[in-house]
Design a protein around this nucleic acid. Sequence first.
DNA 1: ATGTCGTAACGTTTACGA
Length: 260
Amino acid sequence: MKIATFNINGIKARGPALCDWLDEAQPDVALLQEIKSVDEGFPAEPFEERGYNVATHGQKGFNGVAILSKLPLEDVTRGLPGDAADEQARWIEATVVGEKAAVRLCGLYLPNGNPAPGPKFDYKLAWMNRLKARATALLSAEAPALMAGDYNVIPQDEDAARPEAWREDALARPESRRAFREIVNLGFTEAFRACSQGPGHYTFWDYQAGAWERNNGIRIDHLLLTPQAADLMTDCRIDKDVRAREKPSDHVPVWVELDA
DNA sequence: ATGTCGTAACGTTTACGA
């Protein structure tokens, strides 16, 4: 079962690029972030034509997450628990049943948090605290599950081409890294780092200042696996080439293969 | 030229968020 995360930066603008990647990569599941669309405005037809079931959790103009799955989506829930007043669409869950195992999928778009310090940074850290609570509950189920998406966290200096440029940024500040580490250390496997080590692996290149051409990237899209999911993992990779195509997102897909 | 996008809105341009 191939499961990918992809921040597409606007579903209305990314239709052709997303379809091209789906046709080529053939993921069973794609967890999408930044659809920037309400549910009613999500153009599901091209994906349904390709055999995907579609579940969305959108809002007007910003944020928004979705799941595309060739397997039926069961027990879909929307919104990260812990704050009924939070109206930002950043979390969606569903279960898919493979031939060998069922997998609980959590798609997330973690707040950017800039400028830091400030209320947006406070919101980011509060959201990560809620994420930690949900992560703890997921682990207690002792079953295959993953939390994947745009974490907006650069875990370590080796995950940025120019770490000194991010030192004061909400994506790399010690508070953000600490909160991310606390969640991982509950018992998750960070899928990409379980398969590849060392610097030079990125999932985002800014549109500005020739970041792609200079390979000035950062690694902020992650898949966290419960132990039961990690036991099923056979591969994890970044589809870097997607960034060089026509009208690309500023992020590229990251995927895991599970023997599920 | 202060290096780019995507989206929304009383739009032929500006604001915002990233």
